[in-house]
């Protein structure tokens, strides 16, 4: 099982990412310990130079992390013929207990890495490294998660025993079995539709309030996170069926397949980008009073808010378009 090119590639990238993050957090710890902006010592100078290296490394980590998230799901999907009863990624992720937690962890690390880059960008706007301690503390939070992800991924792939009978997506994401996924599906469709559109409209309103009048930054950010979760639930609950044109098919992974024109990549990317940008607004809120950031931070937050609103709107537009013009009429 192990010697599949896709699995080897994922292993390689996990190892590289872990190595980079370990190195970065080691340097980060040094910075947290010895950083003194007022000093002109050799150590301080070296640390200031190192911050460039760390930003570069983390920038690449984020991009690789995004690639590997999609490669992972695609590989899980490609593995399904090896497991009797599995019909798509859901089946192969269900083969052992590591599959689904791994996907969730990958999404969390992606979001955190995105937030880190936003803080880093804000930090670079000020001449006196105003957010340096915050960003390296966040890095120390991110690093263990990425390491855990690497280990979990190894456990998942090494624990794959082909031929195990697993439940296919038809039975996990259908109404009559137990579990979180099944509960999402069995939520009444009408109320889920209301919740989804209400959440999107609410987020949009908060976003506009923030963009135009610079108010409710925290509220907007919280709404973005909440809507992120609601959108995923809504996708499983009622949006998916219009894409598959099958009232019983709720799988969140099948949409990544060729049959649906790879539209799933576009949808998930919009959600992820919107989520990172919107949460970034909230993360930056506490730093608006810092003298060296006073000028630049609000406009940067506005741009983030705009990016996030546009991404969510596009997501909603594509979903709504499909709901209206799908051959499936409910």
């Amino acid at each position: 099982m192990f010697f599949k090119p896709g699995i080897l590639a994922l292993f390689l990238s996990s190892l590289l990412i872990s190595g980079m993050v370990l190195y970065a957090s080691f340097t980060g710890a040094l910075i947290l310990r010895y950083w003194d902006i007022k000093s002109g010592s050799e150590t301080q100078l070296r640390l200031e130079r190192k911050t460039y290296l760390i930003s570069t490394i983390l920038g690449y980590v984020l991009v690789f992390q995004l690639f590997s998230l999609f490669l992972f799901i695609y590989t899980a999907d490609a593995l399904h013929p090896f497991f009797t009863g599995a019909m798509c990624a859901v089946g192969s992720l269900n083969v052992n207990q590591w599959g689904f937690p791994l996907v969730v962890l990958k999404i969390i690390t992606f979001l955190l890495a995105g937030l880190w880059l936003i803080i880093n960008f804000a930090d670079n706007q000020g001449y006196d490294y105003p957010l340096i301690k915050v960003k390296y503390l966040l890095l120390l939070v991110l690093a263990p998660l990425i390491l855990a992800e690497t280990i979990m991924q190894a456990k998942y792939f090494l624990g794959l025993r082909p031929e195990v009978i697993t439940s296919c997506c038809g039975s996990v994401f259908s109404g009559d079995t137990a579990g979180v996924a099944a509960e999402i599906v069995s939520l009444p469709r009408a109320s889920m539709e209301v919740v989804f559109y209400a959440a999107m409209l609410g987020t949009l309103a908060l976003g506009m309030a923030f963009y135009r009048r610079d108010r409710m930054g925290y509220g907007f950010s919280a709404a973005i996170l909440l809507t992120f979760l609601i959108a995923i639930a809504a996708f499983i609950s009622f949006i998916s069926i219009y894409f598959y044109e099958l009232p019983t098919h709720h799988c969140p992974f099948c949409i990544l397949q060729k049959e649906y024109g790879y539209i799933g990549y576009c949808l998930y990317l919009l959600l992820l980008v919107g989520g990172v940008a919107g949460m970034g607004v909230g993360v930056l809120m506490p730093f608006r009073q810092i003298p060296s950031l006073k000028e630049t931070l609000p406009s940067m937050q506005r741009r983030l808010a705009l990016t996030s609103i546009i991404s969510y709107l596009l997501f909603t537009a594509i979903a709504t378009y499909q709901i209206i013009f799908s051959n499936l009429k409910m």
Partner: peptide, 16 residues
């Protein structure tokens, strides 16, 4: 994509 993971990503890491 797999090929990219085997070549471009390691190359990029090696040159950072």
């Amino acid at each position: 994509a797999i090929l990219f993971f085997f070549t471009v990503i390691p190359y990029t890491v090696a040159t950072i």
